[in-house]
Amino acid sequence: MNRLSIFILPAVLIVLLAVPLFVEDSYIRHLFIVAFMYAVLASNWDLSLGYTGLFNFGHMTFFGVGVYTAAIAAKTLGVDPWLAIPLSGVTAALSALLIAAPVARLKGIYVVLVTFAFSQLVLQLILSQSQITGGGEGMVRLPYLRLGDYSFIRDYKLGYYYVALGMLTLSTLFLTALVSSPFGKSLKAVRDNEDYARARGISITRQRIAVLVLSAIFTGVAGGFYAIYLRVASPEALGFGTMSLTLSMVLIGGVGTIWGPVIAALILIFATEAFAGIRGMEEARFIIIAVAMILVLRLAPGGVLALLNRLTNSTLGR
């Protein structure tokens, strides 16, 4: 993994920076942007679900809070979209703090149920407060990004591409720094051996609260970005579709790896978009994703990245 981080990843970043120079088709650029956004979602979810072993099934809440924060701030309150996006990170972190306090004390299946119920509650609130959120229709024609006279909606998505890539880079640097910090190491210690961690005086409650809040920051930012980029905020952000797609990225990429979900997001977005292009597959593609999730759980529980690692290790004779 370290070898991968030091040599391959900067190379990947350089390649991604160069992509728009060769890809002028705005639809392909759009797919990259969506993939970057999902990569942020999935890798941050992996921080709580995989890395900490916290059965958090309310990750989409933070995304949804981010989407609606940016939408309301930019459209209703007239905040500059450049400010609305980071603001989404703040409100998402606050919502995480709200749910983390009761969740941190719970165990096992109750964590799954409460976090999931929380995401459904936020969805209900968004649907019911239609004067503010637009209800089931959502909010449309949100303000877009500008830089002086430069408009981000007339450049074939060039600007958004780099904003999304920047967001993904920052989020990934943040996550990798976090997991290699002493705090990140203590997360792993708790996940693998709760008693040992308790004996060392690590407060599991505090740790879980911290993880939920930290994993919500860039998730919220991604939500804010998504709203501003698509110029739409819709309740689907909290729906099963978004959730299952993101969860499949975490699983297929490899639980507890941070990088795996990023790679899986890129692969899956292009794969599912290819399916969405086929008539009659708009709904059926989710079935394919669900089947893929099950197959990964049954056949390659470490995810695709673990599989790749095993392959590279064996070819290097390790």
Partner: peptide, 16 residues
């Protein structure tokens, strides 16, 4: 945790 995810997948398959 795994069965939460596999039954979630089953939910998606049935629903869709």
């Amino acid at each position: 945790l795994i069965t939460v995810m596999t039954t979630l997948a089953a939910m998606i398959i049935i629903e869709k």
